[in-house]
């Protein structure tokens, strides 16, 4: 299990990196944390002609609070930094709470936010969180910069809107799912074979209740159940304007299952994912309602 030959570049500035990607286009693979790419290179499942190592670019690793109360995260920011960031904990607690579910700490020490998102594994946590939080991705190229919403960025299994020559450089997350004292409540859950594995099914739910417990806004995002993270709009609609109680959750759970059309793989069948999706969605909503007593794990 040894890599095939490739050319290696380690640009030391963003401009240089974008130039390099422009030059090599489809032939180049970006090496960030390497936690997904390197196994594929070792197994020769990936045989890039050119490896563009972006780890020596100094200004892509940051977590910056934005004026609107959200965060801008550099693509090269290690997942472990996000996990430990007090800004993340204060501003987007659901993100902080979900981080330990990504692999193991040695993986998160290297794995980057941008890498996970660009890799676009449909069972991965970060793409789903960005989806749920309605973030924005900044895509840079030698000649251009554009901003995409996750719904436009994730196309299918391991496939994104990144064009040859483009690099994901920043992830912007708006101020949603704030701390429990705020009106947004949240829940994150996944079912894995073992802790740290990719999710068979996962859910991120964000919920806004008024003083009387009536749902004003809801966002239910499922992952591991389709080629990309998916929002379950019909279930969200069922919540809107209702007092979120047991029978409503029952309905929502059923609707989520009905709406899912997952694929089967070695870890779980389509039928299992479809049904468990509803269960997990309900659990995240229950956790959201009772956030202070909420449990982050399945």
């Amino acid at each position: 299990m040894k890599p095939a030959k490739f050319e290696y570049f380690a640009p030391t500035s963003l401009a240089e990196a974008l130039e390099l990607l422009h030059e090599h286009g489809d032939d180049a693979k970006v090496l960030a944390g390497g936690q997904s790419l390197m196994p594929m290179i070792n197994m020769r499942l990936a045989r890039p002609k050119v490896v563009a190592d972006i780890n020596r670019i100094p200004d892509l690793d940051y977590i910056s609070p934005t004026p609107d109360g959200g965060l801008a995260i550099g693509a090269l920011t290690r997942q472990r930094s996000v996990e430990k960031s007090t800004d993340v904990k204060a501003r987007i607690p659901v993100l902080a709470a979900a981080m330990p579910s990504i692999g193991h700490f040695q993986i998160r020490n290297r794995g980057t936010v941008g890498g996970s998102i660009s890799h676009a594994d449909p069972s991965a946590e970060l793409p789903a969180l960005c989806f749920a939080l309605d973030g924005e991705f900044v895509l840079s190229s030698a000649s251009n910069q554009r901003v995409l919403k996750p719904v436009d960025f994730f196309i299918s299994h391991l496939t994104t809107a990144l064009e040859p020559g483009e690099l994901l450089t920043e992830i912007r997350l708006p101020a949603r799912a704030l701390a429990p004292s705020e009106e947004w409540r949240w829940g994150f859950q996944e079912v894995c074979r073992r802790q740290g594995d990719f999710a068979m099914v996962g859910a991120v739910s964000l919920l806004k209740l008024d003083g009387g417990g009536i749902c004003q806004s809801a966002c239910i995002t499922m992952f591991g159940v389709a080629g990309t993270p998916v929002r379950i709009r019909r279930a969200e609609e069922a919540l809107l304007g209702s007092r979120v109680n047991g029978s409503v959750l029952q309905d929502v759970s059923r609707i989520v299952s009905e709406e899912l059309d997952p694929d089967s793989d070695i870890h779980a069948s389509s039928a299992y994912r479809k049904e468990i999706g509803g269960v997990i969605a309900r659990r995240t909503l229950e956790a959201a309602i009772d956030r202070r007593n909420g449990d982050e794990t399945a």
Partner: peptide
């Protein structure tokens, strides 16, 4: 050699990492 077993764990600038998932360069 695909980052699961942890036998190759070393400290890289103080952080525990899988050395099979990094290039020597």
């Amino acid at each position: 050699e695909h980052g699961v077993c942890g036998a190759c764990t070393i400290l890289f600038n103080g952080d525990a990492v899988r050395s099979c998932l990094m290039l020597a360069v």
